[in-house]
Amino acid sequence: MDLTSQEPVTLQIKEDRFWLYRRKLGDFWRLYRRSALGKLGLIIVSFFVIVAVAAPWIAPFDPFSFVGDPFLKPSSTHILGTDQVGRDILSRVIYGTRISLLIGLVASAMTIGLGTVIGLVSGYLGGWIDNALMRITDLFIIIPALPLMLIMASILGKGITNIIIVITVVGWTATARMVRSQTLSLKERPFTEASRAIGSTDLHTIARHIVPNVFPLVFANGMIAIVDAILSEAGLSFLGFGDPSAPSWGMVLHFADNAGATVNGYWWYIVPPGICIMFLVMGFAFISYSTDQILNPRLRRR
């Protein structure tokens, strides 16, 4: 074997790794398919994604136009009636899917991203960096989430970007802690030492060896992060910090509350947006639950 030429060997390793991932993914998928809850979760989430994408075609009216008298009860024209200024509620709920889903996914992605980076850096570099970062993490874990979010929202103001920032700043801790402990244990493994020994830079070691092993846990955690993000956004919007020009389900409920829907019994205004939030969250929760059952070997059924 000619050891002086590098190309073919690297290519072969890359290919092997690809098939390894393919196989691992295939195994995971096979196990996942058995889980009824897991499949249900996927169906629910897919449903909402489709609704979000197809909103302009599905919604009967423009969600911002005044298309009827205010406070109309459900009828064949307005299946969910109209709100306090005469907008069609069903259309608002359908378009709300886009905002709720978008914020949920973006906020959780940033949360996971930030948490993973901090966890990796903290776990891998150790020392005073680790100490400092962990102190800060502890702090953010201890502070009550919603009050902190509200306080930050009051400082930063309303709006979607601010909501995303607020959710990220409050939520990165869980991922950070988990990634850090994984990194710490992976650091002790022989392959890390080997990687350092042959002279790889820290970044290379982290990227090539540690990240792939951390990934499955991060993924499972990610589902929970999405759940938290969606619920947090709903809460913040309900309390009035959302963007009225891009109403999420939480904002629709905010308007409902303002219109006195609760005390006047306008269930068609209250129930649908909430059910949507509930089902979207449930979808991700089911996926998270099933993923957890597979990745956590102790919970696996024999």
Partner: peptide, 23 residues
């Protein structure tokens, strides 16, 4: 449990007001 966990707290409150308070 998964269902109640998925419900936004404020919405659950609104529902309870609706059902037990209003109706």
């Amino acid at each position: 449990s998964l269902v109640t966990y998925s419900m936004p707290v404020f919405w659950l409150g609104m529902l309870i007001i609706l059902v037990f308070g209003y109706y």
